[in-house]
Write a protein that binds this DNA or RNA. Structure first.
Lengths: 193, 193
DNA sequence: CTTATATGTTTCGTGTCGAAACTATATTGA
DNA sequence: TCAATATAGTTTCGACACGAAACATATAAG
């Protein structure tokens, strides 16, 4: 069956990503899962940069994630900031060192090399197709979509400015391309708590 | 950059595969990496079903793989057979129970669900595109290609029958679709030792 | 005000993973 | 021919991811 081959190919690409992350991370004293957490923190917005957010994204327990983040903090790659409204919440921001590490690791060298002679259009098309699969996959698993605000049903555009309909806060253009744990696509059944 | 998004999307799909493998494996008392090894053994040919083969495929050391396979054997999912010519080599064959376990796990349920309303043609196109990326990625990493004999430069077709030019052995039609650790694409520089 | 819920941490047991030492068999080459 | 070398695989050990569960604290609900 065709899906079988798709699964196998994806699984194999996964493996290469992990092996490269392991090799590359070893140079920085980091493990694959720690790089993934750092990657997430580098792309998520201020509603999502918490232990809980990372936990949901990686599909691991809070306890496990807590330890992962402790390592990242000790390495000086992320910085903990208390939330101003809710004192239970801790925000995790990537530091300059963290972003520098990320730049070295993503996108993976082998991907750049592999796509060297592939047209920009082709890469774009493949990316869009994969994103569509991911969107459907996350829905199928009941997982959150972790999309950018710009594609979110809660995003409201008023007089050229953006605003989150869930929190009521204003969003800068930069904000709207970051990923959010409350993200919902417009066409998906509403599941807000 | 576009490759950046491709990397992120792939990494996220990876995660879903692993999380699902963890959940599903837990039911069978197996871990993601053990399922991957079983998956490989279910699809590779008789030149590749060894500890060394799994080690190359998963990018892990022989020692680690040796332990992984010990678990699979203890669970009755694979069976060890000595090689008839070289007594150093152990062949690992999936048992009926192993194949039954595989059928439940691959393709992943969420992939089937996610692609339910996608056309066969679209899935096929995406699979081919990903395979092409994988091929280039493996070459970029200097990793083996693990392709099917039918696409291998060593495969020789004589009077409708197939034969491996490397070992000189005859290949049945079933053999030619299994993946091989000696596989090389026709257009790649020769690196046979 | 009491109970329930949510965020995050710590502890502990299981088990992956790589490194390295080891056994056994096969190959090479002088 | 036989010693040196290479290859397949196992075992041992230490580091550490990971989940489960107990815990601390803060907010929400009734």
């Amino acid at each position: 069956m065709s899906i079988d081959q798709l699964h196998t190919t994806l699984e194999r690409l996964c493996n290469l990503l992990r092996v490269e992350a392991r090799e590359h991370g070893a140079g920085n004293g980091l493990l694959p899962v720690q790089l993934e957490a750092l990657h997430y923190l580098g792309e998520c917005n201020r509603y999502s940069d918490s232990v809980q957010g990372v936990s949901e994204y990686l599909g691991q327990t809070k306890g496990t994630v807590s330890q992962t983040l402790k390592v990242l903090e000790k390495r000086g790659l992320v910085k903990k900031l208390p939330d101003s409204n809710d004192r239970r919440i801790v925000h995790l921001q990537t530091t300059a060192a963290g972003r520098k590490t990320l730049d070295k690791v993503v996108p993976a060298l082998f991907l750049i090399e592999a796509l060297k002679s592939t047209s920009e259009a082709k890469i774009g098309q493949l990316t869009e197709d994969l994103k569509e699969v991911l969107r459907a996959a996350q829905q199928a698993r009941g997982a959150k979509s972790f999309g950018a605000c710009i594609t979110c049903r809660f995003n409201e555009s008023v007089e050229g400015a953006f605003q989150c309909g869930l929190t009521g806060e204003k969003l800068t253009p930069k904000d709207t391309v970051k990923i959010c744990r409350e993200h919902l696509f417009p066409d998906v059944d509403c599941k807000v708590s």
